[in-house]
């Protein structure tokens, strides 16, 4: 039980640090709202390393903490909608089987953007933001792909990280 709390703490800290790093270096693609989503790397890793409910909790905690630290309440609502939809879809694809880590991450990236677009449509009470859909879909595909490749490499090296093991696990 203690180990599990420790792992959860490490994942939370990493996700928060990645959010911070991303807020320091705004990797701009020249398109508003499009960013790499480094913290999602930790969420994807958690999806394969922690229990599903822990991954969800991690996602919510990450969004709230980074929102209070680096964002505002708008960004929390956006991030939450994107993060939860994204994680739900990833969990479904993982359960469905037949998808690789990269494929699951791509779906996560795309649905992250779709979730945020839904909130945007509700907040601004208009539907013409829908013209933005193709940009967000392709952006989600690319960022999700990059995150997926990184997550795959991390998971390969974290294969030894398991419950109760006394080996020092690499967590970076």
């Amino acid at each position: 039980m203690r180990d599990r709390v420790a792992y959860f703490g490490v994942f939370t800290a990493l996700a928060l640090i990645f959010s911070y790093v991303e807020s320091l270096i705004p990797i701009s693609f020249g398109i508003p709202g499009v960013k790499l989503g480094l913290a999602n790397l930790i969420i994807v890793t958690a999806l394969f390393k922690l229990e599903l409910k822990e991954a969800f909790l991690l996602s919510v905690v990450r969004v709230l903490l980074s929102g209070f630290l680096f964002g505002n309440y708008f960004s929390i609502i956006y991030s939450l909608a994107g993060a939860l939809l994204s994680l739900s879809v990833m969990a479904l694809l993982k359960r469905a089987g037949g998808f690789s880590i990269v494929g699951i991450s791509i779906a996560g990236g795309v649905f992250h953007n779709i979730g945020q677009l839904f909130v945007a449509m509700i907040v601004v009470e208009m539907f013409s933001v829908a013209y933005y859909v193709p940009v967000l879909l392709v952006a989600g595909l690319l960022t999700g792909g990059v995150i997926g490749i990184l997550a795959r490499e991390i998971l390969k090296r974290l294969a030894g990280l398991q419950a109760g093991s006394r080996e020092p696990g690499r967590n970076d």
């Binding site: 039980m1 180990d3 599990r4 792992y7 394969f48 390393k49 922690l50 229990e51 993982k94 037949g98 998808f99 690789s100 880590i101 990269v102 494929g103 791509i106 779906a107 595909l141 795959r152 998971l155 390969k156 294969a159 030894g160 990280l161 398991q162 419950a163 109760g164």
Partner: peptide, 24 residues
């Protein structure tokens, strides 16, 4: 003391699968 982390080997598929390409 039993924890719910995954087994040592990486169970998830590593290379892109047919379903991945369909998704893309």
């Amino acid at each position: 003391m039993k924890l719910n982390l995954k087994k040592p080997e990486l169970k998830q598929k590593v290379n892109l699968q047919k379903k991945d390409w369909i998704l893309i």
